[in-house]
Design a protein around this nucleic acid. Structure first.
Lengths: 236, 236
DNA sequence: GTCTATATTTCGATAGAC
DNA sequence: GTCTATCGAAATATAGAC
C-alpha cells in the first residue's frame, strides 16, 4: 500500500559520506546515545546492515565524527598563527572563527567527547588534540602579555576560559537559532579582548584588522561535513 | 562465594533521596542515557523494581533532577537582586556564584535539558525557568547601562553570553578537576565585568564589594542535592 | 516497601542470499 | 554493495509474593 519509499533523496553517490552526514544530523537533534543505527541508515537511504560494510561498528562512526570536529579549531589556530599579525589581532580572529566553526558543527562537541571517552584509544586521540589546542591558545595569550597589549593573566586558565566561552555560546545558539554566528562571534571576540587589553581603546583598531584576517581565512576550506545539518529527510 | 553484599552503605533512611543522589552521581560520570535503572538501584542500595515505588519511570527521575538543577541559578539571581547593591556588584556576584553552583551540580546541565526536552511537558517547565533566568540577568545588565557603569550593550545577548560562559566553564572544569571553582568564579566574574565596564579601573572596588556579597549569600541554603557526587559506592 | 521472576521492546551486530 | 532474516544482549517496565 502507498507509494514505494523514495530512497536516497539526498544521496550524493558517496554512501560513506552520506552515513556520516546522517549520523551528525541526527545526533545534533537527539544526542548521541538516542541515535540508533536504524535511524542513521534510514536517513542515509540504506538498511541497517549496510552500515557495517563501511564501518566496523557504531563507535567507529562516532570516532570519525569526533576526529573531524577536532580538526576544525586546530586548523584555525594554525591558520591564524601563520599570519604575521600581533597577538591581540590573532586572538580576536581565533575567537571569532572558532565560534563560527563550532556553530557549523552539526552536533554538540562535548557529547561526542563523552562518547569517545568510553573507548580508551579514541579518548587518547581526542585528549591529545584538545591539549594541543589549549597550548596553542595559551601561547597566543602569553605572546600578548609579552608584547604588552594584554595585562598579566594566567595563560592556561585564560585559554581554557576562552575555549569554554566559545563552546558555551555554541550551546545556547543551538537552541536559540535566531542568533547569527558571525555576529555573536564578533561580540564574543570583543568581549574577550576587552577583558585582556591593558588599553581598552585599542579594541576598535583590533576589530578592524581582525575582521580583515577573518575574511581572508574564512575562504580557506576547513569545515568538514559542512552542510550536514541540511540533509533533506526522505519522504515515507 | 565471597562475603554477602553490603547494602545501603550510604543509606540515609530516605530512599527517595538516595535514588536521586545515585542517579545524579552516575549521570555525572557516564551521561544520561548510559545510566541504567539497574545501576541507579544498585548504588542506592535497592533492586530495580523498587525504583518504581517512588517514581513512575526513568523520565520522572530525570525531570526532578532537571527541576532541581534549574532552581539553583534562579534562587541565586533572586538573592543577589534582593541586596541593595549597584548593578555592577550584583552582576559580579551572580557570575561568581552561578559558576560555583553549576560546579556543585553532579551532572552536565545541558544533557539533562536535552533529555527533558524529549517530553513536551518537561520541556515547557525547563524552558520557562530558563527564559526567566535570561530575563533576570538581562535586567541587571540593563540596570548597569542605565546607571552608567556599563557601556551600551545588547542586554539579552550579553545575558546569554554570560550564562553560556558559566556553563562552558563548568564543562571544562568537569574534566580538568585541578581547578578551584571559587577561583575560576572570580576569574570569570572579573573577565565579564571588565568587558562591560565603562571605567575599567572600577574593577577592584567591585571585586572587593562583590566578594563580601558572595560570602554573605554563600551561607544561604541553596544547592539541592549537594554532596551527591560524593556518594560512597558500596563494596561488592 | 522491597523483593523475585518475567514480560516486552529495542538495539547492535551477524549470517548468508543476491 | 545492499539486502532479508535473525540472533543475543541489555534495558525499561510489570506482576505478584512476602
Amino acid at each position: 500500500m502507498g507509494r514505494p519509499r523514495v530512497r536516497k533523496v539526498s544521496g550524493s553517490g558517496d554512501a560513506r559520506r552520506d552515513i556520516l552526514a546522517a549520523a551528525a544530523s541526527l545526533i545534533s537533534r537527539q544526542g548521541l546515545r538516542a541515535t540508533t543505527l536504524a535511524q542513521i541508515a534510514d536517513v542515509a537511504g540504506l538498511q541497517t546492515p549496510s552500515l557495517y560494510y563501511y564501518f566496523a561498528n557504531k563507535g567507529a562512526i562516532l570516532l570519525e565524527l569526533a576526529v573531524d570536529a577536532n580538526r576544525g579549531p586546530l586548523t584555525l589556530v594554525d591558520l591564524v598563527n601563520a599570519s604575521d599579525e600581533a597577538a591581540d589581532i590573532r586572538l580576536w580572529s581565533f575567537v571569532c572563527l572558532d565560534l563560527q566553526a563550532l556553530c557549523a558543527l552539526p552536533f554538540d562537541i562535548n557529547e561526542v567527547h563523552r562518547f569517545a571517552s568510553e573507548d580508551p584509544a579514541s579518548d587518547e586521540v581526542y585528549r591529545q588534540a584538545r591539549e594541543r589546542l589549549i597550548g596553542e591558545v595559551a601561547s597566543i595569550v602569553s605572546a600578548g602579555v609579552a608584547e604588552g597589549s594584554f595585562r598579566r593573566v594566567r595563560a592556561r586558565m585564560t585559554a581554557l576560559t576562552l575555549l569554554g566561552n566559545d563552546e558555551g555560546s555554541q550551546n545556547w545558539m543551538r537552541v536559540d537559532r535566531s542568533a547569527d554566528p558571525a555576529e555573536v562571534g564578533e561580540f564574543l571576540a570583543d568581549f574577550a579582548l576587552r577583558s585582556l587589553l591593558t588599553d581598552a581603546t585599542e579594541i576598535d583598531r583590533i576589530r578592524r584588522r581582525g575582521r580583515k584576517l577573518v575574511a581572508r581565512l574564512a575562504c580557506e576550506p576547513l569545515t568538514p561535513l559542512a552542510g550536514a545539518g541540511e540533509l533533506t529527510e526522505r519522504s515515507s
